[in-house]
Design a protein around this nucleic acid. Structure first.
Lengths: 338, 338
DNA sequence: TTGAAAGCGCTAACAG
DNA sequence: CTGTTAGCGCTTTCAA
């Protein structure tokens, strides 16, 4: 009733453990007859090699950690699927960890992953600290970081940078060409690096399109539907009112849309709204949401590929840098002003 | 530059490995002075015990697998958060596995988890097979199964059963009392156990409320938004048309709502819609969705608690059974007929 | 109060 | 072509 070990197999087949091991790993030539005996013994006993024992020797666990902010943010599921798609092909398993936007919790999760000797960690939480990455790297664990930058990061991890500028630029141009002069922004929590970046890109885009960034209303939201709702309340009290809003993510954009409609507005006639992420829902709701798309599933796939690459290359692995572009997707939530 | 081992600590502190081990695990009394020497050495070397080596001896990995259908189904995120909430307190890490509703893939994932010696597996994919659970249990891995039944399951796993009857009953009564006589059902794929159960509960509820189950239109959907859309097209061609629809999950209900609105209907005036799951979105969209709620996060927490309990009790652990109730939540997508 | 040594299940020299 | 043996990093008897 106890675990079947390689020893049991060896005994049963009447060979040595090393022979069994070599049959298993095809790591040296074994006479066909012997091989068959071993294979039979394995079959009969239902033997399964212990990955734990293997890991102790090989220093590889075939596991990776995926650190995200919060699974219930619809940005993540597609990323996760992308990661898993690649992981599955290499028999890697993924530890999912939600930081809940909490730096301290994030660090604890990383430490736990380190203790479990994951082969690598994908840092995709928007609450990031250098310490987390250090914790991993110091313990010889490879790291891939999404959408975060730090001058010290370069030598430690591979990175995927999202080029928000392209998509935001397109969105703002679209609005301005549609006659919008007062475009507000609902940002994410400005303590987050990514929220800062999106905001800066937005301001820059305004400027490039002939509007005064100083005049733009900026409201800080929480990246959730509720934040969009609240932002609408505030926006609607402004004087003059904005005719268009760019929300830092789709959830807030949707919150805004629904709050606006509850207040009796007709969208997009009375207000144009642009989101960011292009979550599934964006194309499904009505009016469908104009948004800035980024290839979430691809990001997941690339991240896992980069990680596997680093794992394959071992300690000396070169750190790679990838930038992904964003693009504006025109749907029904925006229209010409007036 | 290599991993710091317990040996290094022992040498540095001038004691034996076993002393270090005992200090670490408080597993026997150590003189305070010695203890300090050890603690200092650990500190100085930055020693972290290898969980892998520990696991090899203890037969525990402090990891569990969570098998779900598809993270992008909004039913799951809250469940995951519940699972993680409990897991985190005990330093357990969770392998997230998406079956993509594919039995074969599901089995492979389970095998991979078995090979990695997880301490337990939470089966929460709606595509289930007895074989998956067997695979785990035969390898001494504890199992908790959500919303699935099989006569052979009883002795193998703990189970959480969802009592759909209560909520569906309430929903149907609400509709019937509102004057609805023709209530259609958009089911999940009828190959899924849970889809069958929901459908049966619905038919039973019709009967108990004086309607003829034979007359009810049943349309098979895919549990996704798109399925709801398509179902609407079909429903609208029926003659006579239904005045209300009960969709097997919220995603399809939303798809239905949006498709109906695109076709120029006013909801809930022209059609009442009830969903199931009470996903976050249900209360946020407009009109907000009447639905049948189930405590997703609680389910996640309970499942993980049951698993930990089984792990603590070892091989002989009793299998527990829990049933959770569902309740109808009245919102804006339903109203009296006419 | 502490240390020596065996062994968890496996891989990988080293010998034959 | 195959077996013996020494570990991987830790826990845990058994002795002292």
């Amino acid at each position: 009733m106890n675990r079947v070990t390689i020893r049991d197999v060896a005994n049963r087949a009447g060979v040595s453990q090393s022979t069994v091991s070599h049959v298993l790993n095809k790591t040296r030539v074994v006479e066909e007859a012997t091989r068959q005996k071993v294979l039979n013994a394995i079959e009969e006993l239902g033997y399964r090699p212990s990955q734990v024992a293997r890991s102790l020797i090989s220093k590889r666990t075939k596991t990776a950690g995926l650190l995200i902010s919060d699974v219930s943010n619809p940005f993540y599921p597609d990323v996760i699927l992308g990661v898993e798609e690649i992981a599955f092909t290499e028999d890697y398993s993924i530890f999912l960890c939600n930081t809940n936007y909490d730096l301290e919790r994030g660090l604890k999760l990383v430490q736990s992953l380190v203790d479990k000797s994951v082969d690598g960690i994908l840092f995709m939480s928007s609450s990031m600290s250098l310490q987390m990455v250090q914790e991993a790297v110091e313990n010889q664990i490879h790291a891939v970081v999404l959408d975060w930058e730090d001058s010290n990061l370069q030598e430690m991890a591979s990175t995927i940078t999202i080029n928000f500028e392209s998509g935001i630029q397109q969105a703002v141009r679209h609005l301005v060409e549609g006659g919008h002069q007062r475009i507000a922004h609902v940002s994410g929590p400005l303590s987050l690096w990514t929220a800062q970046v999106r905001k800066q890109c937005f301001l820059k885009a305004l400027e490039q399109n002939g509007l005064d960034p100083q005049q733009a209303a900026i409201i800080e939201g929480d990246l959730r539907i509720e934040g969009g709702r609240k932002a609408f309340e505030q926006l609607w009290q402004l004087n003059p009112r904005p005719t268009a809003v760019f929300a830092a993510n789709d959830l807030m954009a949707l919150g805004l849309v629904w709050a606006a409609r509850n207040s009796g507005l007709e969208l997009p006639k009375d207000l144009s709204v642009v989101g960011l992420d292009d979550i599934d829902l964006a194309s499904k709701v009505s009016p469908s949401l104009s948004t800035i798309a980024l290839p979430r599933r691809e990001i997941g796939k690339m991240a896992m590929q980069m990680l596997l690459e680093m794992i394959r290359n071992g300690k000396e692995a070169a750190k790679s840098r990838i930038t992904v572009d964003t693009t504006f997707v025109l749907r029904q939530s925006t229209q010409r002003v007036g």
